[in-house]
Simulated assay, not measured.
Amino acid sequence: MNEEVLFKELDYKAVRSSGPGGQHANKTSTKVELSFDVENSEGLSNEEKILIQKKLAARINKEGILKLTNEDSRSQHSNKEIVTRIFISEVRQALKKPRLRKKTRPTRASKIKRLKAKKQKSEIKANRKNPLK
């Protein structure tokens, strides 16, 4: 992953933020939408593109464009920084390879403990029954 190339491929769009805010919110475009074309990116290898498309499928539309938005701040500039940071962290997380699971077996003591607990439970239930039968 070449981050410098990725930063050049990002498209930003400022739109009006939703929710309350009075006169300021009605006349300023502080919400920032980030668009990134995953399929046509030159900063990613083919394997990385496949991984990102698989792991971030919920955020990628039918055209293969990854969309992220942010409207936390009242400042367009800080929202742009935040959404860029989120983008980088999401891509890094998607490209991170999961650790292989090491197979383990239960210890002898844990097996004995489990069997004792089962036996105790069955005795408790057996004592609930009517003794006349």
Rank of each mutant, 00 (worst) to 15 (best):
E42N: 04
N46R: 00
A25R: 15
K49M: 00
R85V: 06
S35P: 07
A57T: 04
G43N: 01
K67E: 04
N46V: 01
S35F: 05
N46M: 00
I50Q: 00
L66D: 05
I86G: 08
K55C: 03
S78G: 06
N79A: 05
S45C: 02
I65P: 10
G19L: 10
N26C: 06
I65L: 06
R74F: 06
S45T: 07
I50C: 00
V38N: 06
F36M: 07
E39C: 03
L34A: 12
R59C: 09
T28V: 13
H77I: 08
N61H: 11
E42D: 05
A25Y: 14
R85E: 12
N61R: 13
A58F: 09
R59Y: 12
S45D: 01
H77E: 08
P20T: 13
T30Y: 03
S18R: 11
H24A: 14
G19S: 09
I50S: 00
K55N: 08
I60H: 02
N61Y: 06
N61S: 12
G64I: 08
F87W: 11
S78A: 07
A25C: 07
F87H: 07
Q76G: 10
D72R: 10
A25H: 14
S18I: 08
A57Q: 08
F36K: 10
I88R: 14
I88C: 05
L68T: 14
T30R: 11
F36G: 03
G21C: 11
V15F: 09
N61A: 13
I60V: 13
I86T: 12
N70L: 12
A58Y: 09
S17E: 14
H77Y: 12
S35Q: 10
S41C: 05
I65R: 02
N70V: 11
G22S: 09
S35L: 07
K54Y: 01
N79L: 04
